[in-house]
């Protein structure tokens, strides 16, 4: 599953970048991230509750940020395993100045395995898209402005 989307923010790239690599903000933006513990430079153990509405699974996993090139790009890795199987995602994020604010390009790749792949295949892509949109919507909230999903 691959997704590519752009989001517009009113903040300059530097603010956006700083927020995105800040674990406290990351945790608030990753939908269903209940806990994050630092395990090293830019890497964390995480408890994730992922899904939609009543159909949610609990996962224990890792969140990691690498390939940091402030203020324009970095890669975010999230992986988890739990009763419903496993999830793994990688998002390459590029931040470009646009007018007063900035535009963010997110190219992500996700994989799921086990039960969720077996029974949820029709919804996985839509859930992934929703989670990504949700991530940036929450980021917008954290920055006290609103992200506008582009195309």
């Amino acid at each position: 599953m691959k997704l590519s989307a752009t989001y517009a923010f009113q903040d300059p790239g530097e603010t956006l970048f700083a927020a995105l690599v800040d674990p406290a903000i990351l945790q608030k933006c990753i939908d269903g991230c209940e806990k994050m513990e630092k395990t090293g430079e830019d890497s964390y153990n995480a408890h994730l509750k992922i899904g939609v509405a009543g159909i949610k699974g609990s996962y224990v996993g890792k969140v990691r940020v690498d390939e940091k090139k402030p203020p324009e790009s970095f890669t975010l890795h999230v992986e988890g395993k739990g009763g419903p199987g496993w999830v793994k995602g990688k998002a390459k994020i590029q931040i470009l100045p646009k007018g007063e604010g900035s535009e963010l390009l997110c190219e992500s790749e996700g994989q799921v395995g086990g039960l969720i792949a077996q029974v949820g295949s029709r919804l996985v892509e839509a859930v992934g898209k929703k989670m990504q949109d949700e991530f940036f919507r929450k980021l917008g909230q954290q920055l006290r402005n609103t992200s506008v999903p582009g195309k």
Binding site: V112, G113, G114, A117, Q118, V119, S121, R122
Partner: peptide, 9 residues
Amino acid sequence: QLLTGEFMD
């Protein structure tokens, strides 16, 4: 991953 794991698919 097996995508046809039950009668829904």
